[in-house]
Write a protein that binds this DNA or RNA. Structure first.
Lengths: 205, 205
DNA sequence: CGAAACGTTGACCGTTTTCAATTACAGTGG
DNA sequence: CCACTGTAATTGAAAACGGTCAACGTTTCG
């Protein structure tokens, strides 16, 4: 569902004609801290970056977990400072797109601005779909809905390029719950599991 | 969390100098259907519009539920046809922003394009935060996290302009679960409920 | 070859959902 | 001014469900 499954954000293309240097972030280290002047938008090359906000009462709230291929802190383009910490959960590599460059691109290059707007609009659509998926409480139904959406290409066939554990995270379920759901769906004849794909029941429509 | 809590999308301002006419949609009626030529982006003035996709096997998947103040079908700006149905769940009124107008604005008016991009980027941030909230499994903790985020304005105080039932939906919980969570949090001294607001425990930080 | 991660299933427990019933209101029309 | 009515708020009890823990086979990859 996220960018890593489509092969990149395209953000880099918009902003940096020249290759930006990748920063290495150790596990637990911060890319930036809340209150730091906002200087760049980032793309995760590898690893996992967690965005957390420190609240007035000292508590923490996680705002986002950016994975390989995801961009983060896009909205900081219009903010003087970062409003959260960006901390690496595992050793990571991030690409920094300097804010001035990006902003200049967007302000002077109409096409770049449109491309960026489009990128964001598509993110919005995708995120809404994910959120809506989570409104399905039943694990089997949630998994089935996910499978159906994934089967967009070849109708009825979901190719699997990721592990079920990763899928489980996207779905907001544990891997065990997903396995059980898959088993139940298969038992019910809704799906058939093959080598590296899942075939949905042919409803004959 | 959604736009209605911030007072509008600003989309209308970007696109339509002249007031666009509002369309009335009866409950169950469609604003547009999957496959229709994409002619406009919409804003919900009142009511509730559900976006559903028809899948190859005849099943339906809900992609989004747009409420008062929410825009929908923004991404159709870059699509020839709509990829889902937009159906009113209750009698609704929607504002149609003609695609050509909007697109022309974005293409010719650099400022409008930037504003739109910014709007989308902020939506992305907000949606990610909502999604992340749903990763908290415990109902009381989820509610508490939500309250903390909401208390952004006056630290420690969450003004309530919506019903708890509505909040429960945003949180992906049943209203009962929310009530119980609130009761538990109050019992634990984490919060105090007053007339039309909630006061968080003063952690003295 | 061995370690680590993935895949899979079982059992148990805690929580949430569901269903149900009751109270508290706010608006409406008599 | 007040029953009347629909919605929101609240609480209880039972059932269902997913999470967690555990164990084990399998695949992957250095």
């Amino acid at each position: 569902m996220t960018n890593r499954h489509r092969g990149g954000t395209g953000l880099a293309g918009i902003a940096s004609p020249a290759a930006a240097p990748a920063r290495r972030i150790g596990a637990g280290a911060a890319v930036f801290r809340q209150g730091d002047p906002a200087t760049a938008v980032y793309i995760v090359e590898s690893g996992r970056i967690r965005l957390v906000r420190h609240l007035a009462d000292g508590s923490l709230v996680s705002l986002h977990t950016a994975r390989e291929g995801d961009a983060f802190a896009e909205a900081s383009l219009w903010s003087e400072v970062y409003h959260c910490d960006a901390v690496a959960e595992v050793p990571s590599r991030v690409l920094a797109l300097p804010k001035p460059d990006l902003l200049r691109s967007l302000e002077t290059d109409q096409a770049a601005c449109l491309a960026f707007a489009r990128l964001m609009a598509e993110q919005v659509r995708e995120l809404r779909a994910r959120l809506e998926l989570r409104n399905i409480r039943s694990a089997p139904e949630r998994v089935l809905a996910w499978l159906r959406v994934q089967a967009a290409g070849v109708p009825g066939v979901v190719p699997l390029d990721r592990t079920w554990s990763a899928v489980a995270e996207d779905l907001g379920l544990t891997k065990e719950a997903v396995y059980r759901a898959l088993a139940a769906l298969e038992r019910a004849g809704e799906i058939r599991r093959e080598a590296k794909r899942v075939v949905l029941r042919d409803t004959g429509i």
